[in-house]
Nucleic acid binder design. Structure first.
Lengths: 232, 232
DNA sequence: TAGGATGCTGAACGTGCGTTCAACACCGAC
DNA sequence: GTCGGTGTTGAACGCACGTTCAGCATCCTA
């Protein structure tokens, strides 16, 4: 029931009621939060509430489909952007917004809500960042780290977390039309502090770092003896 | 109805049903999320559902009281810790947890939920961080910044946001008993990446920063011509 | 001892939700 | 032309929730 619409050749144009429901759901979940009523989504899609459950089985079924759809689309767009531009992951991520505001909003709701889907997403971003940083270390543009994976995770979680926290006033109801501008303004505001911190650091004295580094289990920079995963 | 319990001299021992309800609510909101049913809270407090509304008027009234109570307590404890130890704000913040796990959990829920209360909290933390960094710049331990307020906000939002994002697996139901250990493990894990980043930065080349700094409106480090506030 | 305020109860009401279901419309196959 | 299936509807069910309310208990005051 999931993979292919039962109608003949309908899956091509992607304008089936099923797709309309899915799109309406993504948009409504983004604006109103992941607890948005199915009746509202049905009204948005111009469809009866019963049809949603006919197609997706249950509310959770619809959520699962939205999760999968948004993540797939995001990673597809992300890969394209990453292939085309040599910019940093976060910058490339925030660049291609124009059309995808509903999906970006849905991603923010996922960040807010948590759960296994988010965990998997963060892990994937961490893995990509590890590779990206490793390449930077290799070509001499990025400093090596005592704990490359922990550093990548820290950077990813800081960036995404800060992004999520910046939406507090608008979290009750996300305005998708204004989202692109808001994110643009946000990136401009954090550019200087980020570059400052990433270029010069914050502390003048190296003693704190060296004190902690001395107590570290022997790890050569660039390799990763530390085990990753969520210790939650 | 808010400020003083109507009973004579009852406010001293803080063991009134009203206080028991408030404590149970904070704990239940922390574990189950801010949408936890009033009936559950009533059962936790050993009290009938009607009594909650007798004391707090409505669900929102209870939420308001919890917000105010938790924030007051947190800032009180924070001020104490900050006065005693010279440690960084984040470190001191995460140090005194033993008893206050319910309030810390409630704060995490506030971070997750957003809203004006969270905005005010973040603003207050940013202001404190501005002062802290300014003092560090003055005594030479912290590098000056082109945009001190934006830097402080970035640091606060990164730290809090990363903290929030690290709870994803447990966000459905927070285990308050394990919270202290989880946060302890988290701080240990991020200590090295944080110190590394704060001491050495990430980028080898200064050209990116200098390119952006050149386009900046003339601002002398240490002062703040940039206007603050939320552009959301 | 009477009386009234205060703390508190538990049943009940109304609402909004996810979900179920019987029925209808359309459409290609025989 | 009939028939089965797929897409779709909208009314209805059951449930959980916030909230209301009439009444009871307890204790201070007079």
């Amino acid at each position: 029931m999931r993979s292919t619409p039962t109608g003949p050749e309908r899956s091509a144009d992607d304008l089936t009621a099923r797709a309309r429901i899915r799109d309406a759901a993504v948009r409504r979940f983004a604006t109103d939060g992941l607890a948005a009523p199915l009746r509202t989504i049905a009204a948005d899609a111009g469809v009866s509430p019963g049809l949603i459950l006919h197609h997706f089985g249950s509310r959770d079924g619809l959520r699962d489909e939205c999760d999968q759809f948004v993540l797939d689309e995001m990673f597809r767009a992300d890969d394209e952007l990453l292939r085309d531009s040599g910019a940093s992951t976060a910058a490339a991520w925030l660049a291609g917004l124009g059309q995808h505001s509903a999906m970006v909003g849905y991603m923010l709701r996922l960040l807010q809500h948590g759960g296994p889907v988010l965990t998997a997403f963060v892990d994937r971003m961490v893995a990509a960042t590890v590779d990206y940083l490793e390449a930077g270390v290799a070509d001499g543009s990025i400093r090596p780290s005592l704990a490359p994976r922990a550093r990548a995770r820290y950077i990813v979680e800081s960036s995404l977390g800060a992004l999520l926290l910046r939406m507090p006033a608008a979290r009750d109801r996300l305005d998708l039309d204004a989202l692109a501008d808001v994110l643009q303004a946000y990136t401009e505001e954090v550019t200087v502090p980020t570059l400052e911190l990433y270029t010069e650091g914050l502390l003048v004295d190296r003693s704190l770092l060296e004190a902690f580094a001395a107590n570290l289990p022997g790890e050569s920079p660039g390799t990763e003896p530390e085990q990753e995963g969520h210790h939650t």
